[in-house]
Amino acid sequence: MRLAALPRRPSEPTITLINVVFLMLIFFLVAGQVAAPVDRDIQLIDAAALATRAPDDALAVRSDGTTLWRGEVTTPEAFAAARIADGAEVLRLVPARDLPAQDLLRIANALRMAGAAEVRLVTDRSAP
């Protein structure tokens, strides 16, 4: 007794996809090994250990409401006047984490009243 042959199914497209992905994996593994390593005598900078500071064009605000620009105590109005005279339309504000919200709003409004077209807050993305 002779059994009938099973009909031949066309090739599965997923097998082709798996083959392509596997070849890409092999390629990237080899390409990663070809890249020249960094000199072993070089010690890279630990960015977590660096002290943070406000950018030179931003007004820093301490938690007690004291405003600093380039390390000097100043008023929001004087800061805005100096920055607008330099051609800046957007003023940046770096508030302390524990600055009360009403103080932050007062300072931001003072910057707007002094002629700032826009006030942007600079924050730390990694802050909890």
Results as ranks from 00 to 15, higher is better:
F22I: 11
E89T: 00
N19F: 14
V38N: 14
R62C: 03
L99K: 01
F27E: 11
V20S: 15
A116W: 14
F79C: 02
V122M: 11
G65A: 08
A58V: 00
R62Y: 01
V30C: 13
T14Y: 15
G115D: 09
R97T: 09
D103K: 09
V61R: 05
A96R: 01
G87A: 04
A60D: 05
L68R: 00
R125I: 15
T75N: 07
A35M: 15
L44H: 09
P76S: 04
A54R: 12
A35Y: 13
Q102D: 10
M24K: 14
V21I: 12
N19W: 15
L91E: 02
P37H: 15
G65Q: 03
G115S: 10
D57H: 08
L121K: 06
D57Q: 07
V122S: 07
D56N: 06
V122A: 06
R120P: 03
T52L: 12
A110Y: 08
T123W: 14
L17T: 12
L111A: 05
P95A: 09
A36N: 13
Q33W: 13
P13E: 14
A54V: 09
A108I: 06
F27G: 11
A85D: 08
V94T: 10
A31M: 15
A51I: 03
E72S: 08
D57W: 04
D103H: 07
R106S: 12
V61L: 09
V73Q: 06
R40E: 10
G87E: 05
D56T: 08
L68P: 06
A58I: 00
L59M: 04
F22V: 08
D57A: 13
A108K: 09
A35W: 12
L121Y: 02
L59P: 02
I107W: 09
T75G: 06
V34I: 10
P55H: 06
P55Q: 03
V119T: 11
R62I: 02
P55K: 06
W69F: 11
F27N: 11
G71H: 01
A60G: 02
I42F: 11
A114Y: 12
L104K: 10
E72Q: 07
A35R: 12
P100T: 00
T67N: 03
V61D: 04
Q43L: 04
L104M: 14
N19H: 12
D86T: 00
E118G: 01
G71W: 07
V20K: 13
A85P: 04
V21W: 15
A81C: 00
D41M: 00
T67E: 05
L44P: 08
A81W: 01
A36S: 11
A78T: 08
A81Y: 07
R120N: 11
A110C: 09
I26R: 10
A49I: 08
A48F: 01
D57M: 05
Q102C: 03
G87Y: 05
E118R: 14
L121H: 13
D56Q: 08
D39V: 01
I26N: 12
A78Q: 10
A80F: 07
D56E: 09
R62S: 14
A54Q: 10
R106G: 02
D86S: 04
P13G: 13
Q102M: 08
L23R: 10
A58G: 00
V94C: 02
E12N: 15
L93E: 02
P37A: 12
I18G: 14
V73K: 00
A117G: 15
